[in-house]
Design a protein around this nucleic acid. Structure first.
Length: 215
DNA sequence: CTCTGGATTAGCT
DNA sequence: GCTAATCCAGAGC
């Protein structure tokens, strides 16, 4: 595997989201590399996607999504949690992929300590947990993924069937889209993903339906 | 300035 | 399954 080039990110967001499954996310802080394999993602695509932060236009928070692809968009929510997103598509088009689940692979004990848990399956099985296990906050908002201390390696292979489902934690608008993708047999997917079954389907079926629940 | 609610999590019932 | 925690972005005035 090698570091993904800028061209990888400058493509349709759904394609980038699917290709990110199985890639390795690595964070180098103080000379210690932590990270693992991406097993769950969600796509947020443009101002016409009501679930996307860009649905109400450019704001101070979401401006990084409007820039070139291949950069990290980090934001803070619920008073406690940081969310990691990979900016996609061409400059001026706001879109990103939210990273929601990671299988820890590098310096697992360091990640475990940051999360204050001994449970291997609780280290980075959720978007907020993932950020904390890698020691990433809004200080890393705008980080360049092509160079610098946060990197993505590919191509990836999750060694599991990929399933699609509706996105989690968003309101009714945009809830018909099957824009969440995950490795269905991997135990490091988020808790919500494990509990929701009815709106999930195999990737091939979702694709046939245009990635939508509606006909 | 004030108010509302969130791309979540941990802890309790 | 349910809810408190916790603070900031965005909207409305």
């Amino acid at each position: 595997m090698k570091r993904l080039p800028a061209e990888f990110y400058n493509r349709p967001t759904l394609e980038v989201a699917l290709d990110l499954l199985g890639c390795h996310l690595i964070r180098d802080s103080d000379g210690i590399k932590t990270g693992g394999m991406i097993v769950e993602v969600e796509a947020y695509v443009g101002e016409n996607d009501p679930a996307c932060h860009a649905s109400r236009g450019l704001t101070p928070r979401n401006k990084i999504m409007y820039g070139s692809s291949g950069f990290l968009y980090v934001y803070f929510t619920y008073g406690n949690h940081f969310m990691l997103n990979v900016v996609t598509e061409k400059e001026g088009f706001p879109a990103a992929v939210l990273l929601r689940g990671l299988e820890p692979l590098y310096n697992i004990e360091v990640m475990s300590a940051r999360r204050q848990t001994d449970d291997y399956f609780n280290i980075s099985s959720g978007p907020g947990k993932l950020a904390r296990s890698l020691d990433i906050t809004t200080a890393q908002n705008g980080a360049d993924l092509v160079k610098g201390d946060i990197s993505l390696l590919g191509p990836g292979n999750v060694d599991s069937d990929i399933w699609a489902s509706t996105r989690i934690g968003i309101g009714n608008p945009g809830s018909d889209k099957l824009w969440r993708f995950y490795a269905c047999d991997n135990p490091h997917v988020s808790g919500e993903t494990r509990s929701i079954k009815e709106s999930s389907r195999p990737l091939a079926d979702a694709r046939k339906n245009g990635f939508s629940l509606r006909q």
